[in-house]
Design a protein around this nucleic acid. Structure first.
Length: 218
DNA sequence: AACTCGGGGCA
DNA sequence: TGCCCAGAGTT
């Protein structure tokens, strides 16, 4: 397992590789961010951004989303995977935000998690990106990178990964950390073809050393 | 813990 | 063609 100094080194190197790391989802306003993140589950972000942009040409506020039949909203996001669940969730979530929160997206993680289609990861993105609340959103990239490097254990749950990161990284770096790890995971430490041979973290990466050793034997 | 939803992108 | 993708809800 890596110590805190080694973790700091890893994050610095990720920052050098991807100095432009940022939230790629459209977040001009909190409500649009919620919709974008709900749509983003199991989809590529480029596609989500395209669809979200088109969506908000037509729909502006929560009341606009519940003013149309479900089938129409489904059709508007048809090019995104899991679109039936997502359309239903966006309508329900729009209604709750409108009725319970007077049209304003709550800035509380627990309240956000009560919304349909919003889990812990989505709630963390929303409070962190839209409201500047310190949080680490653990998605598949953050989880994979943390486990490969040895920041946490392989068997750890997503929540345990998040807790470990929060415990071992200074609070004022949480936000930039999850964006760095997402970029690093997506473009460098890829799920299927990690670039171990050109990785600055190879010498302290548990999985990287194992992979390079296995590749050398072949 | 495993299963399901799911069209588009990419090799 | 086959496989994967900024997850969440249900069983």
């Amino acid at each position: 397992m890596l110590n805190n100094t080694q973790i700091r080194y890893c994050l610095d190197e990720m920052g050098k590789l991807f100095p432009e790391a940022h939230c790629e989802l459209n977040h001009s306003n909190p409500f649009e961010l919620v919709v974008a993140v709900v749509l983003s589950a199991q989809c590529t972000d480029a596609l989500v951004n395209k669809v979200t942009k088109n969506l908000f040409q037509k729909y502006k506020k929560p009341e606009d989303f519940i003013a149309v039949p479900l089938s129409e909203l489904e059709n508007d996001i048809r090019s995104i995977g899991l679109y039936r669940n997502k359309a239903k969730n966006i309508q329900k979530l729009s209604q709750i935000i409108l009725e319970k929160y007077n049209g304003m997206v709550p800035n509380d993680r627990d309240l956000l998690t009560e919304l349909p289609g919003v889990g812990r990861k989505t709630a963390n993105v929303v409070v962190s990106v839209a409201y500047g609340v310190p949080a680490i959103a653990v998605d598949t990239h953050v989880e994979r990178v943390s486990k490969r490097l040895g920041i946490c254990r392989w068997k750890d749950s997503v929540l345990e990964v998040e807790k470990t990161l929060m415990r071992r990284i200074p609070e004022d770096e949480w936000s930039i950390t999850h964006h760095r790890m997402i970029f690093f995971g997506r473009y460098h430490c890829k799920a299927q073809s990690p670039k171990c041979e050109v990785c600055p973290l190879l010498l302290l990466c548990r999985e990287g050393k194992k992979r390079m050793k296995a590749a050398g034997k072949k």
